[in-house]
Simulated scan of single mutants.
Amino acid sequence: MSKICKIYDVLIIGAGAAGLFLAANLRGKSVAILEKNATPGKKILASGGGRCNVTNRRIDASNYLGDADFATNILKNLCFKDVLKFFGELKFNEQKQNQFFCESGAKDVLGVLLKRARQSGAHIFCGVCVKSARKILTDENGQILDVSPAQNCDKNLTDFETKFDQNEQNLNEIFEVIAENGDKFYAKNLVVASGGLSYKSLGASDIGYEIARSFGIKVIPPAPALVGFTVQKEEFWFKNLSGVCFPAEISVVCASKNSANREPKMPRKFADDILFTHKGISGPAVLNASLFWQKGLIAINFCPNFSIETAQKSKKQLSTVLSLPRR
């Protein structure tokens, strides 16, 4: 048996926005954050074009996939006003009446998060690439018991404890996190805030999914989201419209997974700007719609406010009546 020198109250994997914000609000507890990159918050610095769109006035569970009740419960405990209050020393510019960007840039947003996390006593360990996590048992002296309950994730801790004398008292269940270099960290509570798979160049990895699977948690295979609509090579005439931006409405229709005849659901509609690129269409409307697209139909209404009746009564040329850029 080996003895543990330090057991944290909370161990957080990932020094991004979620991990740092949590650490800043865990006052009075011993907290450690494990960050894969050499410095914390790389994705924060890249967000919002370097201005960090830190929060949104219109936050609703309907904008998230998964368990709606779970999302609702989270969102009701933290509104956008709470976030702005947390960053009270910074100034934010609200765009399109819902998106809050930091006027002085993402670097200052990260600075506040780091300052508050350290004020709460959190220790940040950078350059730590997590390999795995498991539950272990220790005795009252912090000695690790030799048998690991994580050898079979289908067995719970109670099954493991039966291997020990029933009279043995003060067994503690803790988490052991192992880094790729062999370093080990221990904590009473573990928070995985490693993010998703996007932006591998910023340090993203699948460690969060791997840890979830190791604890027997079902993982839904991730799909691309917040991505543009890309056309095929023969349709690259889109590049002639590159840079054109205007409001439109996108409808995403997906077949119901629960329907035997695969009848389409009611479409979800997204009204916002679209931006033509040399290989397709991007912009807020397309990026938001991409989250809900599941290889079904996408319809784009380029003139959502156009009325054919009004056009028929007008003596103007159609190109003038249409609310579209000249190109």
Rank of each mutant, 00 (worst) to 15 (best):
C5A: 15
I7L: 02
V10E: 02
L11R: 07
I13V: 14
G16K: 08
G16M: 06
G19M: 03
G19E: 06
F21P: 05
A23D: 02
A23K: 00
N25E: 04
N25F: 10
L26R: 15
K29S: 06
K29N: 14
V31W: 01
V31R: 00
I33P: 04
L34Q: 02
L34T: 10
E35C: 07
K36W: 02
K36N: 01
N37D: 13
A38K: 14
T39Y: 11
T39P: 04
P40Y: 12
P40K: 01
K43H: 03
A46I: 07
G48S: 03
G49T: 13
G50C: 14
R51L: 15
R51T: 08
C52F: 10
V54D: 03
T55D: 09
R57H: 07
R57W: 01
R58I: 08
I59Y: 04
I59D: 00
A61T: 01
S62A: 11
S62D: 05
Y64E: 09
L65V: 03
A68H: 10
A68W: 01
D69R: 12
T72N: 13
N73V: 01
N73P: 00
I74L: 14
I74F: 07
L75W: 08
N77T: 07
N77S: 14
N77E: 14
L78P: 00
F80K: 08
K81A: 15
D82V: 15
V83Q: 06
V83C: 02
L84W: 09
F86A: 09
F87D: 05
G88L: 02
G88Q: 10
E89H: 12
E89M: 05
K91Y: 03
E94N: 13
